[in-house]
């Protein structure tokens, strides 16, 4: 029944089916009850999504509020000196803005994609699955030990390299993460390889940002149709 209700609100019914549905709604208590559930659930989900977004904005607000305030002091020196200072400040501000943006972009990507990693539901938990579970339980150091132990035995295992890289990235160990993602990116036998794109994300977190290297990597992802292409294109098209 929910499928029919879903089709109605997604405009997937023909005109006659829509009319039947609306007519039935006024006379069939069970359908009305389920439709009300569907709508109430959507409002509740919307409220929950809004609450989550509000919490994210609140975190952003705290970040903005804690930034140091730069006060401009009156300058009584020669105009030349003032101009020089302004020039330096100008360059610094441009540099700051781009660094904040790359960092912010990387943070959102990490938050949306590396908060939880996919775990298989079967009971046969191998080491990799155990590492992933620990990762999802935010026991990142323990997860890292497991991924690295697997790599000690099978140093070319692409899944373990990927997850070891993601874990290092989450731990803020960017040099280590880059090493893993570069090694992943070099593997040519994979159906889908996110190595280059993850390398770009990691570089965005490193300060100061090497803009040229990030741009080149994103371009490589696009040109070679690698995993992460659509995200890379979105950034490039702006």
């Amino acid at each position: 029944m929910l499928e029919q209700i879903d089709k109605y609100f997604n405009n997937e019914l023909s005109l006659s089916e829509r009319k039947d549905f609306e007519h039935q709604l006024a006379t069939d208590a069970e359908l009305a009850d389920n439709t009300a559930f569907y709508l109430n659930a959507n409002l509740a989900a919307k409220n929950l999504a809004n609450e989550k977004r509000k919490a994210e904005f609140d975190t952003l607000r705290q970040g903005i509020s804690s930034r140091p305030v730069r006060k401009i002091k009156p300058v009584s020196w020669a105009v030349g000196i003032a101009a020089s200072i302004l020039l330096v400040v100008g360059f610094w501000r441009i540099n700051q803005a781009s660094e904040t943006n790359t960092d912010e972009f990387a943070n959102i990507y990490i938050q949306e994609h590396f908060e939880n990693l996919p775990v298989k539901m079967d009971a046969n938990a191998d080491s990799l699955q155990m590492g992933l579970r620990l990762f999802n339980e935010k026991k990142l150091k323990e997860a890292q030990r497991i991924f690295e132990a697997i790599l000690y035995r099978k140093n070319n295992d692409s899944e373990s390299i990927k997850y070891a890289g993601i874990t290092a990235l989450r731990l803020g160990e960017y040099d280590k993460a880059l090493e893993y993602f570069r090694s992943l990116g070099k593997q040519t036998n994979l159906f889908s390889n996110p190595g280059k794109f993850y390398e770009a994300i990691t570089l965005m977190k490193q300060q100061p940002v090497n803009k040229k290297e990030v741009e080149d990597l994103l371009q490589e992802v696009i040109d070679n149709n690698l995993e992460g292409k659509s995200e890379a294109e979105k950034i490039s098209n702006q």
């Binding site: 904005f57 952003l60 903005i64 972009f105 959102i108 949306e112 979105k234 702006q238």
Partner: peptide, 14 residues
């Protein structure tokens, strides 16, 4: 959609 949307919304907030 996705990350570009979130980045834009955060930027707008700021």
């Amino acid at each position: 959609d996705g990350i570009l949307q979130r980045t834009t919304e955060n930027k707008l907030y700021e």
